[in-house]
Structures are given as C-alpha cells and as structure tokens.
Simulated assay, not measured.
Amino acid sequence: MGFFDALFGRTKIPEGKTDQLFALSTALLDLETRLDSTFAGQAAIILRTVDNSGYESLEKDVQQILTLGGKDMPVTAHHVDDQQGYRWIVFEGKDPEDVINALHLTADMLKQAGYGDSLLAAMFAFTPSWYLIYTYRRAAFYPFVPQLSHRRDQAREFRIAQTLKPFMPIEKDPERWYALWDPPL
C-alpha cells in the first residue's frame, strides 16, 4: 500500500498465493491411506466475476494450453457462473497431479494477466463426498464436508484437518472454514 492509499483510507486486495497448492500433491498418498479417500477427478478455481474482453481472451488461452497439452496433460476445463455471482473454472481429469498442475498454471496465468486479486479459492473433490478448499489469500487448506439441508459434518472436518496438518498448511482458524454450498463439481 502506498502513501496516498494510506492517507485516503484505500486498501488494496492482496493477490492470491498459488505456490502452496503443490502441498496437495505431496499429501495425496496420505489422503488415500490415512483417510481412505481418493481424488474424485474434479477441481475448480473460484473467482470474483470479471467482465471484460481481456479476461475472456485469457480463458481461451487456458483452453488452448490444455488442448495443446493433449496426452501430457489430459485435463479439460470449462467455466460456470453461479447464482452468487462467482465464476468457477472447473477442471476434470483422472490424474490428480495433472489437475493440480492445470489449476496452478491457470491461477498463475490469471495473476500474470492482472487478475490475482480475483482469485478466491480452489476446491478439490474427494470421495466419499467431501472437499478440500485452498484459500489463495491465506495460502492454506481446509476441509468441507457438506450434508443434506446445508448442514456440515464439523466433527469429520476437524478429523480431516488434524490428519492433514503435518503434511500441508491447514487454516488454523475454523471460523475461516467457509462453506461453499452446491459447487459445480
């Protein structure tokens, strides 16, 4: 924040931090063995909606890169705008490493194009029916276990967090474990 920003009370939204995403790659084996969970083949980046042609061009570039990756990165991506006004870039692929790499590459492209402050979170689907959410601004993960009627299994969330804590950065404040209901994953 610059001098005039401080003087006039303006705050700048920090850019998202993407490098901690790779902690998930190293924790995948622990997820399978300690939690009996597997990657469900889907992940997403959640963004504040951006309305301009530069952003649409960037989405086309992402599609092109994933298409060019072909056999090396067999991941598909599409975007969904939800009812709350957020944009989801949804990635699908069998190999979690490929999906993590595609997601990280896309987040870095967004940052380089000036949309780093629009990055909110990344969400990874696991079976049986839970999600791991990465908050870009806090560079930490937290579990989300939805149940029917927009309720959460908080006991299971705490068990998952405690299991993963030695292997990846877990958000320390459970008040910041925001629910992302009805994800398009």
Rank of each mutant, 00 (worst) to 15 (best):
M1K: 11
F4T: 12
F8V: 12
G9V: 05
G9D: 09
P14N: 01
E15A: 12
K17T: 11
Q20R: 13
Q20V: 05
L21Y: 11
F22R: 09
T26F: 05
T38Y: 07
A44R: 02
A44N: 02
A44T: 13
V50H: 02
G54E: 09
Y55N: 04
E56F: 15
L58M: 12
L58R: 01
V62S: 11
Q64M: 04
G69Y: 00
V75M: 00
H79S: 13
H79C: 06
V80Y: 13
V80K: 04
V80I: 13
D82C: 09
Q84A: 13
G85K: 08
W88T: 08
I89Q: 08
F91L: 00
F91N: 07
F91T: 05
E92G: 14
G93R: 00
P96A: 04
E97T: 09
N101D: 10
A102E: 02
T106G: 02
T106D: 01
D108H: 07
M109D: 12
A113K: 07
A113R: 14
Y115F: 15
G116V: 11
S118C: 09
L119Q: 10
L120N: 11
F124A: 08
A125F: 07
F126L: 13
S129Q: 15
W130C: 04
W130L: 04
L132R: 01
R137I: 14
F144L: 07
L148K: 14
R152L: 15
A155P: 03
R156W: 12
R156I: 03
A161L: 03
A161N: 14
Q162H: 10
T163R: 02
L164S: 07
L164F: 07
D173A: 09
D173F: 05
P174M: 06
P174E: 07
R176H: 15
W177N: 12
L180G: 10
P184D: 06
